[in-house]
Design a binder for these strands. Structure first.
Length: 304
DNA sequence: AACAAGTACAACCGCGATCGC
DNA sequence: AGCGATCGCGGTTGTACTTGT
């Protein structure tokens, strides 16, 4: 018997050889053609009438996860990654529910993304991926980085540094009535290295919660505060921008509003940054758990 | 070049929920 | 109500491909 076949008994008690494993092009085209003619559903019957030596379950999975015309292929965009992180923090492993908010992405794809990339990072950091610590780390470093990437994607020619974007925007410069990721993240360029909270008078120095995300119209993130209100930053020892303005909080703030399809008010308490454990200090629960190594590792998450 | 280890993702499995007779 | 068929979800496995040695 070939490696990818399996003898089973169907309901008619007749022996039938079922194929397993990777789908062939012929099988794919047969399935596509049959669904085009007869529609989805009744997968066992569909498999039978199409002459596919597959279970209905297998046909359904192949169609939903791979063949369906509106399936998006290719790497997840930073926007999509950000949404996955946010939604997972809210709903946990409810992959299908998460997938509903990512048009063209399947629950399987999202699940794979989580397992291969997100959990990998958690392992490397020696943190349980479902722990609060990891969630904190994600919100502290990963999400801001993704937002930064979104900006770069949105305007590849722009300079992503806060200093540049701030200085280049005059106080009279009009703000887009419908701010984009670019406009947000131009005011949200987190420091490369940890900066201690004590440097900042305002303890809410990073009130990152979650972006406004409209799934039907790509991601839109509001700029909660005009960047030009926060001029003049300094550089740290690594040449990275340090935000020295007393009202820094505003330039870091990313508002949580809603999703288009379903209002999604992300629990503000789930955001890691509180007055007691600010991002910049990273004193989670009063503990300096983020060593420099860990911070570097987290910072590199965007490569995932 | 050959092999091992790591990675990404398609596909399978088990199980509970729902449907229809 | 009972039962089998089907559906949908989340977890797991298998395997092709990539990267490192």
């Amino acid at each position: 018997m070939p490696a990818h076949t399996k003898k089973v008994r169907n309901s008619n008690e007749e022996d039938m050889e079922l194929r397993k494993g990777p789908w062939t092009l012929e099988e794919d085209s047969t399935l596509i053609h049959h669904i085009a003619c007869h529609g989805e559903g009744r997968w066992n019957l569909l498999a039978k009438f199409a002459g596919l030596k597959r279970t209905g379950k297998s046909c359904r999975l192949r169609w939903l996860n791979y063949l369906k015309p509106d399936i998006k292929r290719g790497n997840l965009t930073p926007q999509e990654q950000l949404m996955i992180l946010e939604l997972h923090s809210k709903w946990g492993n409810r992959w299908s529910k998460i997938a509903q908010h990512l048009p063209g992405r399947t629950d399987n794809e999202i699940k794979n993304y989580w397992r291969t990339r997100v959990q990998k990072q958690a392992r490397q950091l020696n943190i349980e991926s479902n722990s609060k610590r990891f969630l904190d780390a994600v919100k502290c470093f990963w999400m801001p980085r993704l937002i930064q990437k979104m900006e770069q994607t949105a305007s590849p020619t722009s300079n992503s540094s806060l200093t540049t974007s701030m200085n280049s925007r005059s106080s009279s410069a009009p703000l887009s009535p419908n701010p984009t990721a670019a406009s947000l993240s131009s005011s949200f360029s987190p420091p490369r290295k940890l900066i201690h909270t004590s440097s900042y008078p305002n303890e809410n120095s990073c009130s990152f919660t979650s972006p406004i995300i409209h799934t039907s119209d790509s991601m839109k993130i509001s700029e909660s505060t005009r960047a030009h209100e926060h001029p003049a930053d300094t550089l740290d020892a690594f040449g990275n921008t340090i935000y020295s303005h007393p009202n820094l909080a505003n330039s870091y703030s990313v508002e949580s509003r809603s999703y288009d399809m379903e209002t999604l008010m992300l629990d503000p308490t789930s955001a890691m940054i509180t007055s007691e454990n600010s991002l910049l200090g990273c004193h989670m629960e009063g503990v300096d758990w983020l060593s420099d190594d860990m911070a570097d590792s987290l910072w590199n998450m965007n490569e995932m």
